[in-house]
Nucleic acid binder design. Structure first.
Lengths: 209, 209
DNA sequence: GACTGTGAAGCCATTCACAGCT
DNA sequence: AGCTGTGAATGGCTTCACAGTC
C-alpha cells in the first residue's frame, strides 16, 4: 500500500474526524454532512471533503455520509483495523502516566512492555504490565513484536535508547524527550515536546496585543 | 507588539532553536552558523535564516551568530523574558506527571495552582504546590494572575472547565483532553492529543510499505 | 573564502465555485 | 433542493541562488 502524497495536516485531521465520528455513532447519529463534521472539528467543509477525497468517495451526493461507513473507512485508512504493540521506555512520572492513560489503551494500541533503568521501578505493575529492566530491551521488543517505542527517558539517554529500539526492530518512535533524535529514514518518528508547546503559547501571547 | 504573519511552523522551530542554542551555550560554544543550527535540528540552513529573518538580522556575514546574542534575541522573541503563571486543571495521572515534569518547571513558566474535583486529591502536595478544589478555580486564577491554563481533565468536563478558565481571565489554554474546545477568538489555544499522535504513527506505518 | 540576508521561483495546502448525483 | 466530489485559483511556506558583508 502506498499513499503518494498525503499532507501531514490531513492525516492529523482524519484522526480527529475518526474520533468525532466515533462519538457521533455512540450518540446514535446515522448520517452526517461534511458541514457537520467540519463544525464539530472547527475546519471548513471543503477541507473535510478534500481530505477524504485523497482516499476515495465515501459519501452520497445530496445526502451526506453514513457515520458507520465513514468511520469504518477511516479506521482502515488510519491502519487502526489491526493491533499495534507498544513499549514505553522510561517509567518516570510521564512514562507511568502514559502507561495508565486511558487514551493510550484504546482500540488497536496495546502496551506490551514498560522498561526503566531504575532497579527500584523494575517489578512494579502499571495497569497490568510489569516494569522490566533496561537490559531486557532487545529481548522484549522481539518477544512481543513491538512496532512502536514511546520514549520518556531523560534527554541525555534518549538517543541511546532510540538506537537500541531501532536496532531491535521497532518501526516507529513517539518521542516525548526534549531532544532531536536521529533515526534511519525508514523509521517513522513523531515528537511531542511539552516545553515547545508552552513556548509557542508564550510567543502567541506576546504578539497578540 | 504585532507580528504580522509568522507561520506556526516557524514559531515551533524557533522554540527548538532556542533549546539547541541553550545546550550549545552550556557546552561553551560561542559562535555558530545557520548550517550548524540546521544540522542540530534537522532542517535546512536556508530555513533557519528565513525563520530568523522574520524578526531582524542577528548574525554577521562571513562569521555566523554569537550563541549568546542569538539566544537572548530568541528568548525575547518567544516572550520568555518574563514569567508566565500556569494552572493545571486535573490532578490525575497526566496532570500530576506534568506538575512534576522538569520540562514544565523551567525558566519563565511557574505552576501556581493545581486543581481537581476529586476531594481525595485536594491537599496533596505536588512539587511544592498544594492541590486545590475545583470550586476555588476562579479565585485561584485571579489571586495568582494565571495566564495559561493546562487542561488534563476527562473529555466530558473539558469544555466546562475551559469556559470557567476563560471567564476567569486566562489568556491561553494548553489542552491535553481529546476534545475540540471552543474558545473566543482572542484566547490562544494549543492541543496536545496523545491518541491522535498514535493514530498518525499508525497511518504512516500502514502506508510505508 | 565564508556565511548571512533576501528576492524570486517552486512547491504544497487550502479555499473557491460549480458540475454532477440523488 | 441538497450535498458531494473536484478542477482551478489562491495563498502560504520552503528552497534556491546569489548579492552583500566581513
Amino acid at each position: 500500500m502506498k499513499a503518494y502524497k498525503i499532507p501531514e495536516a490531513t492525516v492529523v485531521r482524519l484522526s480527529i474526524y475518526s474520533r468525532q465520528l466515533s462519538n457521533m455513532r455512540k450518540a446514535g447519529v446515522e448520517t452526517v454532512s461534511s458541514e457537520e463534521i467540519a463544525n464539530s472539528v472547527g475546519v471548513s467543509s471543503a477541507q473535510v471533503r478534500k481530505d477524504l477525497a485523497y482516499f476515495g468517495e465515501f459519501g452520497t451526493r445530496g445526502v451526506g455520509y453514513r457515520v458507520d461507513d465513514l468511520l469504518g473507512n477511516l479506521t482502515k485508512i488510519l491502519g487502526l483495523n489491526r493491533e499495534w504493540n507498544l513499549a514505553i521506555i522510561g517509567a518516570g512520572k510521564l512514562g507511568s502516566a502514559l502507561a495508565l492513560y486511558e487514551g493510550f489503551r484504546q482500540r488497536g494500541f496495546s502496551i506490551k512492555a514498560i522498561i526503566d533503568v531504575d532497579e527500584k521501578m523494575v517489578g512494579q505493575d502499571l495497569a497490568g504490565v510489569v516494569v522490566d529492566s533496561l537490559d531486557k530491551l532487545e529481548n522484549l521488543i522481539k518477544e512481543h513484536d513491538i512496532n512502536i517505542g514511546i520514549i520518556t527517558v531523560p534527554a541525555m539517554e534518549a538517543q541511546r535508547v532510540t538506537d537500541r529500539l531501532v536496532e531491535a526492530g521497532v518501526a516507529a518512535i513517539l518521542n516525548f524527550s526534549p531532544q532531536v533524535l536521529r533515526v534511519p529514514p525508514d523509521i517513522v518518528m513523531r515528537n511531542v515536546d511539552l516545553a515547545v508547546n508552552l513556548k509557542v503559547l508564550s510567543f502567541n501571547l506576546s504578539h497578540n496585543s
